[in-house]
Design a protein around this nucleic acid. Structure first.
Lengths: 225, 225
DNA sequence: GCTCGGTAAACTGTAGACAAAAGCCAATTC
DNA sequence: GAATTGGCTTTTGTCTACAGTTTACCGAGC
């Protein structure tokens, strides 16, 4: 036992590099979501490897994972290409997203404690002030945090994982336009909190469904713009 | 242009072996779902490679994919372990499955044509006769085919992919007990077809929800048995 | 001028080899 | 007698090398 004399937490965990493939995966995902790598672009393994200062192997493993998660298409004997989203696929993703988020809201209404509700209100306040300050980045970040918190309160890990995937891809598809729903979005968040606090599962579901559908509508407006 | 004189589909695509990693992936998934590889078991790369007659590389890539899909846990610097499902996780998966299947039913009701409905009825008849013959394997297979057909009629590729993943894992968790819901399940299938044919989205959703919830109940009964 | 065939380059798919980390067992010491 | 430390074995993580395939380019022939 070395339990004596070692104040827990002071040891900085001596950050381990972690598997290379993880870091390569995150780096590539960052490059894709930020559009440094454009949809349809051919990803050459050796290029990426050289650029990242590693061998081809970690790059391959990262590409494999990106493939199964739908970020890149892996054509046999030809290589990896950044996935090109179609309108149809984007719409289907939004449908699924609506579904998952609505269910999360229902479960949150069923399971959330007062501490969780307080956390939601705090995020909501933060988001509202960010809107007031016209701090776009903070608004987007807080919005993501709010939805993530709802998902957490739902207490369903499987659901959370799926929703996380879908959410990130939805954002990727639609961020070419810097969308902004402004204050209305946070009014709906308030309604959602009220429904959750009231343990009203049906209303929470409906509010969240309407909320994400509004987001969809906002997205689609840019089509005609 | 070679558009002349080539009846499409007659060219058998001269089947290529396809990437090794694919075949390794399928082989491993088969071994896991059939419980030849037990939950918690340590999967040694070189062992698998030798057993399958390939190098370690394709095995690694297959394990990567299995990891992202939740079949194995990849502990850093320690290797791959077959995922051990907990009761909680299984229940959460069932919740998500219910959600996805219900939505598929709704979309099927909205989109299905008469040809699709006819296909469903055909599968239903096949399933009922299989029940009558007490052909368990055929019942299970036809049941899967029926649900897959509903998913296909829904016309949402994203939804189908997620549901496919979830479905397969649900089956894996609960197949230790050879479950059998018998004829009742197919009565509910008939109700679902009726709702879809009537274009009644709400009823289709509700019937499918009740259907999968019955399945859940059947699953849980084995706990107490 | 256009098409067809051949050649060459580039990239992927796979295999094998080496180094580092983790786990295990035994020997040693308090 | 128990705990610890040392070394050994096993397994992963990474790199390098080679073979197969696809694609593109270029020249010759019709």
């Amino acid at each position: 036992m070395l339990s004596a004399g070692l104040p827990q937490g002071t040891v900085p965990k001596l950050e381990r590099p972690g598997p290379l493939r993880e870091r390569v995966y995150e780096a590539l995902l960052e490059l894709i979501t930020t559009r440094a790598l454009r949809p349809g672009q051919h990803l050459v393994e050796s290029e990426l490897a050289g650029h990242l200062g590693v061998s081809r192997q970690p790059v391959r493993e990262a590409l494999q994972r990106l493939n199964t998660e739908g970020w890149v298409d892996l054509r046999p004997a030809q290589g990896a290409f950044v996935h090109e989203p179609t309108e149809e696929e984007a719409d289907q993703l939004l449908t699924v997203r609506t579904l998952l988020e609505a269910e999360a809201a229902r479960l949150a209404a069923a399971n959330a404690g007062s501490a969780g509700i307080a956390a939601l209100e705090e995020l909501c306040a933060k988001g509202e002030s960010a809107v007031a300050d016209a701090d776009v980045d903070l608004v987007v970040a807080t919005n993501a945090a709010f939805h993530a918190k709802v998902m957490e309160l739902a207490g369903n890990v499987v659901l959370a994982e799926l929703a996380g995937q879908v959410d990130r891809r939805v954002r990727w598809y639609y961020t070419p336009v810097a969308r902004q729903r402004g204050i209305q979005s946070w009014i709906e968040h308030r309604q959602l909190i009220a429904a959750i606090a009231a343990r009203d599962e049906a209303r929470a579901t409906e509010v969240m469904r309407a909320h994400t559908e509004h987001t969809r509508k906002t997205y689609h407006e840019r089509e005609t713009a």
